[in-house]
Amino acid sequence: MRLRPPARWILIAAYLAAGILHVLAPAPFLGITPGWVPFAPTVILITGLAEIAGAIGLIIPRLRRAAGLGLALYAACVFPANIQHAINDLTLADPQLGWAYHGPRLLFQPVIVWWALWVGEVTDWPFRRRQAA
């Protein structure tokens, strides 16, 4: 499918950028990490390294499937931080980002999970591979 390679590179760029930010500038991520997460600075560092590793894995064909699975699982696991970020912001008297950011961000999380699985060649859904005639 011709859409998969460019979609893969977009996701690679996004995860690579996010991973680098997690490693080099963890403060904003610490601010949205739920209080129940132990050793939050270490967790933020590890998640950044996982994002970088997943992005690199998507580039390497023999690692692509594992990277897609890993990034999909990662996206599902960080969803509580996205919820915490929305709660923290939207309960302020003057929210910094508001529903215009948080609503789509929260709704898009399942798409990110699917995107990682699709570009990682774990699934073809909803597209079908053409069968040889």
Rank of each mutant, 00 (worst) to 15 (best):
A27V: 13
V23Y: 00
L69C: 11
R4L: 09
L92A: 15
A40N: 03
F108G: 12
I83V: 15
H85R: 06
L107P: 09
A81H: 02
A25P: 00
T33D: 03
I59A: 15
V122N: 05
R130V: 13
C77G: 15
G103V: 13
D94H: 13
I46S: 10
L97G: 02
D89C: 06
P80I: 07
V122T: 11
F29W: 08
A75R: 00
I12N: 07
I112P: 00
V43N: 04
A76N: 07
I83Y: 08
A67D: 03
L30H: 02
G48M: 05
W114M: 08
L11M: 10
A13R: 02
I10P: 06
L21V: 12
L63P: 03
G70P: 04
V113L: 00
A116L: 01
A133I: 11
P34M: 06
P26I: 06
G35Q: 09
Q84C: 11
Q96L: 13
P41I: 03
W114G: 11
A25N: 13
L21A: 15
L16Y: 07
T123W: 03
V37I: 12
P26Q: 04
G98T: 07
L24D: 09
N88I: 09
A81W: 02
N82K: 01
L21W: 10
A67Y: 03
M1A: 14
L73Q: 03
W114N: 07
C77L: 15
W118D: 06
P95K: 04
F108C: 10
T42H: 11
D89A: 09
P80V: 06
W114P: 13
F29E: 00
P126S: 10
L90C: 08
A81C: 08
R4M: 06
I87S: 05
R128V: 13
L21H: 10
H22M: 09
A81S: 12
P126Q: 08
W115M: 06
N88Q: 11
F108L: 15
A55R: 00
L30W: 02
R2C: 08
A25S: 14
F39E: 13
L63W: 13
R64T: 10
V119D: 01
Q109N: 10
A75W: 02
R129W: 09
G68D: 03
Q131R: 15
A17R: 02
Y15I: 03
I52V: 15
A17M: 07
I52F: 07
P28H: 02
V122H: 02
I12V: 15
I83F: 10
